[in-house]
């Protein structure tokens, strides 16, 4: 049995201590595993991700990455973790090249390794010609590509991806998924939050289905079918069954 890379245990939290958004969440992400985090709008997917990244402080529960917690070892915790946000966060004063250089510098990636990784990534995502462009000239999709490139440049142990397909063209989505699979095969654990259920069903190994901040179902597709009592159902059917009815 593989040891967990990310372990979330009894996590409760949100934007205020008095009104938690997520309640008692427990799940794991193992090396070489892609976990799909799914749920309706407002189910708590982004809040869960913010808690893991340390943007929000949990009310209770524990988050461990490779045995470390953010409080005990913040630098070690973040060193092997990469994040692709739903909204691209860019520095207006940096070119694409400088965004990548800054990321590599922060994570201590030597210049030769940086160059080696950068070239194929830029080629793959059709951004080579735009290497010296500033973000104000980028389309929404290009801005999202900067986020994708920065995360892939790191080749992290754990990759947290929040709705990465928004704004990307079909070819970029294809290359993104191709890269995610490649990283997964190399042992990277991936937590993927998405609404594109067909893609999640095809690429993810296990799922965490959130409903109103609580885990409604979790496990492999087969396990979720059993939990929902829907044999042979697709992820879409399970999702509609579990998350579709208000207040159930």
């Amino acid at each position: 049995m593989r040891v967990s890379l990310l372990e979330v245990k009894g996590l409760t939290g949100g934007y205020s201590n008095r009104q938690p958004v997520i309640h008692d969440l427990s799940f794991t992400v193992k090396p070489g595993e892609m976990v799909g985090l799914i749920g309706l709008n407002g189910a708590g997917k982004s809040t869960t991700i913010k808690q893991i990244l340390g943007f929000l402080r949990p009310t209770s529960g524990e988050i461990r990455f490779n045995g470390r917690t953010l409080e005990n070892d913040p630098t070690g915790f973040r060193k092997q973790l990469a994040y692709i946000p739903e909204t691209p966060y860019l520095y207006p004063e940096l070119t694409l090249r400088e965004h990548l250089e800054l990321t590599a510098m922060a994570y201590g990636i030597p210049e030769e390794v940086q160059r080696e990784r950068m070239e194929p990534l830029l080629e793959r995502f059709h951004m080579k010609k735009r290497i010296d462009w500033y973000p104000d000239t980028f389309s929404k999709g290009m801005r999202q590509k900067v986020m994708v490139l920065s995360a892939f440049l790191l080749e992290p142990s754990l990759l947290i991806v929040d709705e990465p397909f928004v704004g990307l063209d079909p070819l970029a989505i294809h290359h993104l998924l191709e890269r995610l699979v490649k990283l997964k095969h190399r042992g990277t654990g991936i937590l993927l939050s998405t609404h594109v259920l067909a893609t999640a069903e095809k690429y993810c190994d296990t799922f965490v289905l959130l409903k109103e901040g609580r885990i409604a179902l979790k496990g492999t597709l087969e396990e979720m079918r059993r939990q929902a009592g829907l044999s042979d159902a697709s992820l879409n059917d399970i999702f509609i069954h579990a998350a579709g009815e208000e207040g159930t």
């Binding site: 340390g54 943007f55 913040p74 070690g76 973040r78 060193k79 994040y83 520095y91 922060a106």
Partner: peptide, 15 residues
């Protein structure tokens, strides 16, 4: 100006 940048809180560097 960078205080609300999420990357600023994610870099594995001393505060």
């Amino acid at each position: 100006i960078h205080r609300y940048q999420p990357w600023f809180r994610l870099y594995p560097l001393p505060e």
